[in-house]
Design a protein around this nucleic acid. Sequence first.
DNA 1: AACGTACCATCCGTTTCGGACGGTCACAAT
DNA 2: ATTGTGACCGTCCGAAACGGATGGTACGTT
Lengths: 192, 192
Amino acid sequence: MSINLTSSSYLVLGLIGLRGPSSSYQLKRAADRSIGYFWPFPHSQLYGEPRRLAEAGLLAESAESGGRRRRTYSLTDKGREALREWLREPEADVYQIRDEAELKLFFSELGDESTVRRLAEARVAFHRGRLAEFKRTMDRLGGIPDLEQRLAPLVLGVRVELASLAFWSDVLEGGLAAARARMGDLAEALTD
Amino acid sequence: MSINLTSSSYLVLGLIGLRGPSSSYQLKRAADRSIGYFWPFPHSQLYGEPRRLAEAGLLAESAESGGRRRRTYSLTDKGREALREWLREPEADVYQIRDEAELKLFFSELGDESTVRRLAEARVAFHRGRLAEFKRTMDRLGGIPDLEQRLAPLVLGVRVELASLAFWSDVLEGGLAAARARMGDLAEALTD
DNA sequence: AACGTACCATCCGTTTCGGACGGTCACAAT
DNA sequence: ATTGTGACCGTCCGAAACGGATGGTACGTT
């Protein structure tokens, strides 16, 4: 009856904790607009995982209405407790960045001379796009009070995106050497 | 005979392109110290993928010596061409961040009041550690000339890590509101 | 000769992925 | 009334990724 919970399990539990009773589709929608940026999650998992959690007693499942095959899940006490326990632990095991652009950058000496410049152009546009998306979300949620926590990962996201954008802009303007020169003081950051 | 090449395929091709003929084990070593930071890659793939690429004619395979089951792979012309073509395309399909800490941050309102602070403490230490690692690598490679390209992803990594560290430090010092206030000017970045 | 340790390769059960497919509902145009 | 359309919704399944367990080799040290 006891299953092992992954970060993805907690994503599901947490989303339901924040939203209240939800169907898989609603979870997918909610994830796409928020935490999906920091934890990619294929929609098919949003159907499988809740079922697993329901079997383990962490969620309550209620099937529904006529032709619709929709199921609604809600947190049980056990589920809420599991979530709290996870949050009590400040450890975060998973931290992964997977960026094909950095792959191309690393191998750029195997291409021609325009490789880096063209890559930088594309990446400046890309990160601008992400920032614009983040801004839209922040503007949409900005007015609502007591949202500091849900906005927080977005704030971190913006700061990371600004750093990436600055890097690629520097590459575009002054090449790799410039991007390195404007890196900031590493030694200082380490001794504070 | 034609297989579909993933980013991971190009990681293998590229690594061999940079290093010259290499065994799987050498690739694993090389990846761990460099590009592995930006493209997680389980060691078992470093044995399977080259074989696949050899079957497709992109790598040449040479088995070796006595008891050792070691195989050495080198780029064929076809492999080198595939790599160049990939580099010619500035598009980068994959960009994923997967950070369990951001998950906990997003759901922090479901925990107790100390959740965010404790998380921030742990994360400051974590990102300091990553920066220290990056610094060691940069110092080790810093002296060698003509390494600008291979250092570049590391430079981006440092800049991103500095941004993350700054975010969590701000949270620690002034809470989420402070972290948001010191976010930098989003509108400005978007209009440049 | 025995030991320790780095080096090296494979296997295999499990999880994740993502796209294809198929169905339902509300509403509007015909 | 019928058809159309687009959003809504759920499942399946083959393929790929994952990562830990296992087991062997080379080589220097004691």
